[in-house]
């Protein structure tokens, strides 16, 4: 896996954790072990779905690798249900903003984001699974 810094950051790209592949799909409460990531371009309204299957089955470090994937995609922000300490460390060191929310669908979370109703997380909101 190559270093995430290769991905050029696009301020208009945000990533949602999800189990589906469109805006009606549920927002997945997990970050590292979400089945998929939906990459949304705020400028063009284009969607891209990225598989996270490899991390779904990882014995450990799923959050670390998922954060690495998001960084490589060049996203500026992540909207998910919860974010653990290791994923948060990787995301913040890559300068990616993290928003946690309980919106039922990706579309609902996107609406909240657009309305500026999501608060940027300053730290992980759940415990890590190892140590």
């Amino acid at each position: 896996m190559s270093a995430p810094k290769e991905g050029k950051k696009d301020k208009m790209k945000i990533v949602f954790s999800t189990s589906g592949d469109n805006l009606d799909a549920p927002l997945d409460g997990r970050f590292g072990r979400a089945p998929k990531f939906l990459v949304y371009d705020l400028e063009t309204d284009a969607c891209e779905v990225v598989d996270n299957l490899q991390n779904l089955q990882a014995a450990q470090g799923a959050g670390v690798q998922a954060a690495s994937t998001v960084a490589r995609l060049g996203a500026a922000a992540v909207v998910t249900g919860h974010c653990g300490p290791k994923a948060f460390r990787v995301l913040s060191s890559a300068g990616i903003k993290v928003y946690t929310c309980a919106a039922p669908t990706v579309g609902a979370a996107l609406a909240l984001y657009r309305e500026g109703k999501l608060l940027e997380a300053q730290a992980a909101d759940v415990e890590g699974h190892w140590a």
């Binding site: 995430p4 810094k5 670390v64 060191s93």
Partner: peptide, 16 residues
């Protein structure tokens, strides 16, 4: 997944 490139220098997760 104990070391991950995320910028100039990689981050290390000793517990992994």
């Amino acid at each position: 997944n104990a070391i991950v490139g995320a910028g100039a220098a990689p981050l290390v997760f000793p517990e992994l």
